[in-house]
Design a protein around this nucleic acid. Structure first.
Lengths: 171, 171
DNA sequence: TTGAGTGCAAATCCTTTGCAGGCGG
DNA sequence: CCGCCTGCAAAGGATTTGCACTCAA
């Protein structure tokens, strides 16, 4: 199976946190529920599951929806806030900027394989990885918040090992 | 065990790739062995094992050694080249810039626990993680190049859950 | 000899921030 | 009302790049 981007995240992916719960978390932490934050959250809830959105992506979606009152700065501030609250997960792939996605709870780990040559990514879930991470975090007395296994490799489309130069990634 | 940064990477850490092998890899890929590249590699070989160096770090070390003929741009270009050749590993922690370290072969995985509150990192090796990654990569027909398990969590120093605001990270 | 590699400085890209005004609770 | 949030624009920091020159092979 070659790496592709149109990966169907394995079966059971579905956000298991509701908007209601998020609103409650916001309230409980003394944060406010502004229209801007609602719009941004809405983008995540409407997005394909497993989709990684950059702040720029979110901003573009909102612009298309004529939510012109949401500035890019607010998107950045909001994703950071939601990330620190554990609502969003931060995903660092090889593109030079961060992506975010709904953190759907620790019961659903979220891992990636990135091809060093074609720069494509597939996601996969793995209970085994999750269990192992829990065990390790426990050993270190850490309350686990998120886990990511990142595998860098070369998919079969690029068997020519000496082809580095011509396949360097651009930002 | 609380999270600390002065962690001793578990036992057997020692670069198992030699300078000679690297020089050969460079030659084989048609790249040149310039003094600048030698100096940069030298920094990695002299550095404490397990140390993550940013391009800026490398540049500073070279400046102190009066290797003034190595520009920051060259450091960036070189680490990218070495990374794409599989000689360096890229480490994305939460600091807003990338770090690199000698990739010492797939037999020595390299994983991290990052505390969302205090922003400290510990590293650990885990054969179990490595084995699992190999198996997964195999399932996807990917030639494995590097593996990183990243666990985000909160270490026991920060049990106050509502303390988010005062502990936000700065770049 | 020759083209990959370099230094320099400017350019780019991503992200953060200062400030004045807006509005949620 | 108070003070968190926002928009805007400017600042900031990391990384890349255009260009002319250098030097490893």
């Amino acid at each position: 199976m070659p790496i592709t981007t149109n990966n169907k995240p394995t079966e059971q992916k579905a956000s298991n946190i509701s908007l209601e719960e998020i609103y409650k978390k916001l309230r409980d932490s003394g944060s406010r529920l502004t229209p801007q934050r609602e719009y941004i959250l809405d983008v995540f809830f409407k997005a394909d599951s497993g989709l990684h959105l950059s702040p720029e992506d979110i901003y573009k979606v909102l612009s298309k929806k004529n939510k012109l009152n949401v500035s890019l700065a607010t998107v950045y501030r909001t994703v950071k806030t939601l990330y620190l609250m554990g609502i969003l997960r931060e995903v660092d792939l090889a593109e030079g900027h961060k992506h975010y996605e709904l953190s759907s709870g620790n019961d659903e780990p979220h891992h990636h394989i990135v091809c060093l040559n074609c720069n494509k990514t597939i996601e996969f879930a793995s209970l085994e990885v999750n269990r192992l991470a829990l065990k390790i975090a426990n050993d270190y007395n850490v309350e686990i918040h998120d886990v990511e296994l990142k595998i860098l490799g070369k998919c079969l489309h690029f068997e020519d090992e000496n082809n580095l130069k011509s396949t360097q990634h651009r930002r």
